[in-house]
Design a binder for these strands. Sequence first.
DNA 1: GTGAAAGCGCTAACAG
DNA 2: CTGTTAGCGCTTTCAC
Lengths: 340, 340
Amino acid sequence: MADDDPRPLTLRDVSEASGVSEMTVSRVLRNRGDVSETTRAKVLEAAKALGYVPNKIAGALASQRVNLVAVIIPSMRNMVFPEVMAGISSVLEDTELQPVVGVTDYEPEKEERVLYEMLSWRPSGVIIAGIEHSEASKAMLKASGIPVVEIMDTDGTPIDTAVGISHRRAGREMAKAILRAGYQKIGFLGTKMPLDYRARKRFEGFTEALAKGGIEVIEQEFYSGGSALAKGREMTQTILAREPELDFLYYSNDMIGAGGLLYLLEQGRNIPGDIGLAGFNGVELLQGLPRKLATMDACRSEIGRKAAEIIAARVDNPDAEFEKIIELSPKIAYGDTLRR
Amino acid sequence: MADDDPRPLTLRDVSEASGVSEMTVSRVLRNRGDVSETTRAKVLEAAKALGYVPNKIAGALASQRVNLVAVIIPSMRNMVFPEVMAGISSVLEDTELQPVVGVTDYEPEKEERVLYEMLSWRPSGVIIAGIEHSEASKAMLKASGIPVVEIMDTDGTPIDTAVGISHRRAGREMAKAILRAGYQKIGFLGTKMPLDYRARKRFEGFTEALAKGGIEVIEQEFYSGGSALAKGREMTQTILAREPELDFLYYSNDMIGAGGLLYLLEQGRNIPGDIGLAGFNGVELLQGLPRKLATMDACRSEIGRKAAEIIAARVDNPDAEFEKIIELSPKIAYGDTLRR
DNA sequence: GTGAAAGCGCTAACAG
DNA sequence: CTGTTAGCGCTTTCAC
């Protein structure tokens, strides 16, 4: 048992141990082509006994095929993205493809680096969050020659295919619901992130639709870093201190909205009578709060699933036609914090 | 511009475009060896103009070096793991190494598959959650010949190195704090997951230490699936309906604890006077609740950082000595729900 | 400072 | 059903 050779095992080792040619060993291990039951068993046994793990690097180089799908997201700490990932995984699990995740921290430069790094492994496809990318990133994606699906956002021109929702429309629809409910003095609370294009588009759609109803956002408050729930509380307190007349607060995500909700309940405010609230995303957490926050589902897992399906289909059939933009239509969940 | 050749670019293309040998192009692109400024500039320009992205598959095969670290975790939806990931990334960012994530969904068989898949890419190291693995997984890990760091849990025998906390000790310490505070009728609420070894170890340590104080857990309640916050509410209601005398509830994670806390506050219960509560993990979310739930930090990001440091150090210096077990010592956060 | 030759471990393509 | 040959695109090694 004095096995001191640190050299990883190769096909040749299995070949020698089983007395079968490398080529046939390779066929057995990949379930490709016809191999007699006898040799198959011999090979499998030898491989198992040795503890052989195939070298995909060599395999990929020889076959020019890599069963990896690059998934590029801004962050893992925002629960939105793990949920998209779950949708992607659930679909890819039934295929040969495997997701590989890269995180950009919302920085375009890091996105470029991560993309370069991932493309250098020659994946079979790319799923990337957002529809805004640097010129260099777009060039790389176009030049890669592989299917690219941009997810989350459909307000823009996709490189190849986009799956998501229109955040502008989402903002507009929330504004219309607020107008219908008769709220008048609207406040907006969000993140201090110039590069969060989707939040910005929601805000733009929101103000635009409010304007059509002759109303505008009269106060705003932004945060960065820290516990979103705690920040939601603080910001709500602050914005109301500045403008006590506010009768509706639109939060750019559910977590800060939940913080605001908890704060206002403690203050004994009448929700949604005196003041209405709404968030965005439709996170599971909302189910456990004292009141259900109004929100709009971002269709996270459906986006993930759809994106993965597109990649899988196009890997199988590179020449098929495909839609360039797939826009999902989220519905408003009124919950208990938005009058109907 | 009728560029219709879908063949990915190779070093040879850059070589031809720049009039420099492939070898020298390779040197420039990797910053290895001395190259004159003139040729360096020529090469860089040609590479950029063509949009060349190196093929790491070929590079890895030739050099026998892969700058990937396999990170294997049970789930991305449990915020614990994204935070560990963040710790890992923050350290690896300053090195050549890159994390690649695999998810097991708490299933040993899937862990085996994911591990096999990842090892077949010949990573430079493995960081894997938990210290319990199937025999096959352990065998693969041992045979791989690369550094392996098992994270989260130190109650067991590591394959190579372990970084984490003792969950048994964590359970014991919470029990001692509860005994000191004089609570008598203890309930436990957790997940219905036979394979969550860490939760089980906490429970074992907990009951063991309570027993030394002559007290035992008199009621238990378990859940699976759904919104943890909502489940925390339901379970708390259920367990108290069955046993109204309970004066302390120990939750196996902060999310269900937070749900319980919200529920009990709504019921107007006197916390921590009549009834005490504690969770586990120290999640950021707790900062925004009406009261701070007592908890114990699982040291997630420190574990991630430490694990990554170990891998990086051992990749740099494979022959150095190293500690087998690194146990971190979390402290109890009493918050507002556990009498002192 | 630069280039030529020889593989890395595997699989495609073709024979038998 | 099984084996042989010739690379995949890069880096190592050794010349110059």
